[in-house]
Amino acid sequence: MGLSDRILNIPIPVVSFLMILTIALPMVTPIGLPIKIGSMTKAGYDIILGLSEGSVVLMSYGVSPAGVTEVGTGAKALVYHVLSEGHKLILVGPAVDNPMFVEKDIPPIANMLNKQYGIDWVHLGYYAGVEMGLAAILSDISSVYTTDHRGNKLQDLPLMQEVKGAADIDLHICVTFSADMPSQLARQVAAPYGIPIILLCDGVTGTIATPYYPTQIQSIMMSMRGSAEYELLIKRPAEATGGMDSISLSYLYLTLLLVITNIATFYKRGEKKEER
């Protein structure tokens, strides 16, 4: 078996194991490569900076167990930025897992920034129906929620006295893993109401969302890269920034593997032509 044959037939478990190793190594010994801020992430940062103080931000906190490192850290960075700029935050969740992460992530940030629940931020909780639910919330929040996630009646929350629907919302931030979400946001948020949208999503959703950028979705933060960039923009590097070293090493490994594999493929093709 020649070298090119060996390269073309490396056992898959070996390929996968090496991939895991290259992800794990920087977790033990970080490299600290610089991360350049992309224009799509910067756009989101500038939007939040450009809002007048006291603006209302509706955030769909779609963090779930799968995406704690991927988008969870970016979501926390966004919440920190919104609250530190003096804006109001209303949190909803289109998936059943989301409320748990809101209750775990947001109170420490709010307490750090001396933000009061009910005045500066409110957690409304899970809503069913995804697109239908989003449409109903934007049309009239009280048609979906009569209480917040903690059981408080909406009329007892000062923030919810000011916010009834889309007309009172200045920005929508969507954290999601759903590949359908960009088109749903375009249909339910951008097209009818013209509300600016910041999307923090996984890689697949990010690529699918690019046709809507920048006219309907004004900022797309893709996966851990987007989260890391935002952490650096607000000068609070966390897990996403640290995780980019693992991405660097693993991607370098895969790139080299694919290049070598393709060189071997061409070599084999050349050999076959010679034999003929």
Binding site: I12, V15, I20, A66, K104, L257, T261, N262, T265
Partner: peptide, 29 residues
Amino acid sequence: EHVNQTIGASIYAIVLFALTGAMYKAFRA
């Protein structure tokens, strides 16, 4: 936190194994 979150995160992670193998086999020009 200690059941749903932990197991859920691990289940979604193992797709990387299949993906790496698939890219190794499929990304040949």
